[in-house]
């Protein structure tokens, strides 16, 4: 049993360790280790295409997860007040947003937006007062929209699970003491569901940051980090890619630690029973 478990952990971590090790390779071939060097980190950090891709990924993940945290929390609050049929429909759509394969979400969004843009652009052009009307197209907006979909579903589900554990009596007590609904939310509900919102945000951020397949279809001329890495892997992996991958692995690790820290059970400041 011991040997088997050791083998499983080795299996899980050996490939990751290999990427980290090869990122410190002095030679230019990614798969032969010829000496220790941090030169590739410098190369990676001064590669403008790579840094642009990283910046795009961070921005898209931040905005889509941020919007999702707001809309998802609102939806989780609103669903409580919705009728049974409306709630079932909404639940079905949320589940679909998560289980429909990313590749299908990607192509469906591509197909729909191509049609939508073809419809909207002439209308905008006709109505625009000057000769250079804005054009809708694929780019940051479409990636954020597509990532926002699964992000919102994730946040809604996590926040709802948290709301379900809250005692209703405390909300009622707050109302009895003449707090307005908004103040009850701000002072009573929000502090208790905040860890769930934040961990939903972090989860959505990680998913968006790691997503390749959806962005691949709807990115237009913009490049995200996974798309850049994918293209480089096809040309042959360089130590530069290993260096950036190591940085990304480290960053994800920090994010996980942060979210685990936030999600751990702690006594709530206000007893819920």
């Amino acid at each position: 049993m011991r040997a088997f478990i050791t083998a499983v952990y080795l299996f899980l971590y050996a490939p990751i360790a290999l990427v980290v090790l090869l990122s410190f390779n002095a030679g230019r071939n990614a798969s032969d280790f010829t000496g220790f060097s941090t030169a590739w980190y410098g190369k990676a950090l001064s590669n403008t295409f790579l840094m642009q891709a990283l910046e795009n990924s961070l921005m898209v993940a931040f905005i889509s997860a941020g919007l999702a945290a707001i809309y998802g929390t609102m939806a989780a609050m609103g669903l409580e007040r919705l009728g049974k049929r409306g709630r079932m429909l909404f639940d079905g759509l949320l589940a679909a947003a998560i289980v429909v394969p990313g590749v299908v979400i990607g192509i469906a969004t591509l197909v729909a937006l191509v049609q939508l843009f073809a419809l909207l652009n002439p209308i905008v052009a006709a109505l625009w007062p000057t000769d250079s009307p804005p054009q809708f197209g694929f780019g940051y907006g479409s990636i954020i929209a597509a990532h926002g979909l699964f992000s919102m579903a994730l946040v809604t589900m996590i926040v709802r699970a948290r709301i379900a554990t809250l005692g209703r009596d405390i909300v009622e007590a707050s109302a009895d003491l003449y707090a307005t609904p908004f103040n009850t939310f701000r002072l009573i509900v929000l502090p208790q569901i905040f860890p769930a919102i934040l961990s939903g945000f972090l989860l959505a951020f990680t998913f968006s940051f790691d997503d390749f397949i959806i962005a691949f279809f709807v990115c237009g001329s913009k490049t995200t980090l996974p798309i850049y890495i994918f293209a480089s892997v096809r040309r042959g992996v360089t130590p530069e890619i290993n260096a950036i991958a190591t940085l990304v692995l480290t960053a994800s690790l920090l994010l996980i630690l942060l979210s685990r820290f936030l999600m751990r059970d702690r006594p709530s400041p206000v007893p819920s029973e």
Binding site: Y71, M74, G78, F90, L93, V100, A108, A112, M152
Partner: peptide, 30 residues
């Protein structure tokens, strides 16, 4: 009460319609 519910659900419902339901209808038509 109904207005507040609609405001809370609105953004996510719009998102689901625009980026899940509409795309799915589009590939069904295609």
């Amino acid at each position: 009460k109904r207005l507040v519910t609609a405001l809370l659900i609105g953004p996510s419902a719009a998102w689901l319609s625009l980026f899940l339901v509409l795309p799915f209808i589009a590939i069904l038509v295609f």
